[in-house]
Design a protein around this nucleic acid. Structure first.
Length: 509
RNA sequence: GGCGGCGUAGCUCAGCGGUAGAGCAGGGGAAUCAUAAUCCCUUGGUCGGGGGUUCAAAUCCCUCCGCCGCUACCA
């Protein structure tokens, strides 16, 4: 089975922040999980580099747009690397392959009569890349007009090509109706449906007022609307317009992860463009929320911006990945704080999981000659823990299919807590004197449970779980879900255990 | 203004018609294999206010209050 997942392509008018890192990590976990399940995965991320806003930002930085975007795009590429993303491709909308795909899509829409030339006049906010109705504008104290977002607006009048979006209203509603899970979470779906139901107007999809964009075929004085350009990236990377390209088999994408601010572009315009071009719309769009800092909006003026790179250097990559997906239900807004990260790290990673592995493994190292004992006929308690662990792959799969990362992790932690209770109740350290064979049996049950736990946690914390699986003696080629069906042979050598998740000790300063 | 969501233990939240739940935080105890980690027990809520339906409501309906999202309008 093929699985195609994307992050948004990130707009290069600013440096990567926690929101970008968040969506990237979420997509990465799903990509890694699907690979673990044995799917053929295509995981795409990249940068959105056109538009007047970038053109102006480049000018302000004293650079030409290409040099400017080269520089910022590199920062995003680095961000994906230090967040541990396993993306299969990194697309930039300034690449030739993308301009080719945009031109091809445009021509196809044009041939099908979905595009016409008209005149656009209106208040335009460069910062938002959007037009606003007169009635939406706010007036500042000096009489200047502003968009509802606070962005300055200017009156723009220019010839423009239009996409017949209004003609797609009914078909979009029918599509949402036929695919109830297309937009998630449900609250976003309701918003989109009510937006479309309220009526759609044709969409202006070209500009003549600036140059930094993909030229419209046959009309070089026009560049394409940035969102038509940007959304096309998802099919560019799949090989469009070469529908014979191997990657084209990945289309339609299984899941577009997006921030909640861009749900409309992905859930309304994008399926409309695709259907109008005779292409299949994506299967699902999931909008995640925003992070706040101690409940306050993150902003430069408040001075409370949390830089994901700082978090990673301070706490380590895996704890940060874990925190981001564990702390809140995906789709909700969430609050981030050093206190909250440290609590999760110490309580759940160090105490619950890290210490469970360490206490089990050190008993194995010391009293079982550093080798995996044979399995014994299970007692009722053994059976209960083994069954809970064995159920993890399907439970985690169920949660992740709903993009419910925190639920998936909660399922794993239920088993970790059960394993801690099990080791306490069985007390293998006492059995060492009274019943050594039973001690070995108990430690084997724990090692097997830990293998399930570490295996399903790999997508969340790849490096840490690799170390844990090393310590459990699991061969590198036996770490996917299918391999769990075969127990490790008794006598498997176990390397000396070393703490995987040390407690985080705060500086006295 | 319209549509939608939310308001449950100190904190974050689950439950969504049938004797109030989890994690964290707080209190007591056990254990000592382990990263002073773990395990067991426990304190704590008139489920935003009021009204209604029902044998039975946190759960359904109405209304009010407070937050939030989308959207519209401001003649």
């Amino acid at each position: 089975m093929k699985f195609y997942i994307t992050t948004p392509i990130y707009y290069v008018n600013g440096a990567p922040h926690i929101g970008h890192a968040y969506t990237t990590v979420a997509a990465d976990v799903l990509a890694r999980w699907k690979r673990l399940e044995g799917h053929e995965v295509f995981f795409l991320t990249g940068t959105d580099e056109h538009g007047q806003k970038v053109e102006k930002a480049a000018a302000a930085a004293g650079l030409d747009p290409q040099s400017f975007t080269d520089r910022v795009a590199a920062q995003f590429r680095e961000m994906t690397a230090w967040m541990g993303a396993s993306n299969d491709d990194f697309i930039r909308t300034t690449e030739p392959r993308h301009k080719r795909a945009c031109a091809a899509l445009w021509e196809r829409l044009s041939e099908r009569g979905e595009i016409y030339l008209g005149e656009y006049e209106g208040w335009y906010a460069v910062r938002d890349e959007a037009f606003y109705a007169e009635s939406e504008l706010l007036t500042g104290t000096d009489g200047a007009r502003f968009a509802p977002t606070g962005a300055p607006v200017e009156w723009v009048g220019e010839p423009s090509f239009f996409f017949r979006l209004s003609a797609w209203q009914d078909r979009l509603l029918a599509f949402y109706d036929a695919h109830p899970d297309f937009i998630q979470p449900t609250s976003r779906r309701n918003e989109v449906v009510s937006f479309v139901s309220a009526g759609l107007t044709d969409l202006s999809i070209s500009r003549t007022s600036f140059r930094w964009g993909v030229p419209v075929p046959g009309h070089p004085e026009h560049v394409m609307y940035v969102w038509l350009d940007a959304l096309t990236n998802y099919i560019t990377a799949a090989g469009y317009p070469e529908e014979a390209a191997p990657r084209w088999q990945f289309w339609p994408a299984n899941l577009h992860l997006v921030g909640k601010d861009i749900i409309r572009f992905h859930a309304v315009y994008w399926p409309a463009f695709l259907m109008a071009a005779g292409l299949a719309p994506p299967r699902r769009v999931f909008a995640n929320g925003w992070w706040t800092v101690e409940g306050e909006k993150m902003s430069k003026s408040l001075g409370n911006v949390i830089d994901p790179h700082d978090l990673v250097s301070r706490y380590g990559l895996d704890p940060v990945r874990y925190f981001l997906l564990r702390e809140i239900p995906f789709g909700n807004d969430g609050s981030i704080s050093h206190r909250a990260i440290i609590t999760r790290m110490n309580v759940e990673l160090a105490n619950d999981l890290g210490n469970l592995a360490q206490r089990s493994l050190s008993l194995l190292a010391r009293h079982c000659a550093a080798a995996l004992p044979a399995r014994s006929p299970p007692t009722e308690d053994d059976e209960a823990l083994a069954a809970a662990a064995a159920a993890l792959p399907s439970r985690v799969a169920g949660a992740l299919d709903r993009v419910a990362f925190s639920e998936a992790l909660e399922e794993v932690w239920k088993v970790i807590r059960a394993a801690n209770a099990y080791i306490d109740h069985q007390a293998p350290w006492a059995l060492r004197r009274t019943d050594p064979p039973r001690m070995a049996a108990v430690l084997r049950v724990l090692a097997d449970a830990l293998r399930f736990i570490a295996t399903v946690l790999q997508p969340f914390m790849p490096a840490s779980m690799a170390r844990m699986l090393d310590q459990l003696g699991v061969p590198v080629d036996a770490r996917d879900l299918a391999a769990l069906a075969a127990p490790l042979p008794p006598g498997t050598a176990l390397p000396a255990p070393e703490a995987v998740f040390p407690r985080f000790v705060e500086d006295a300063a």
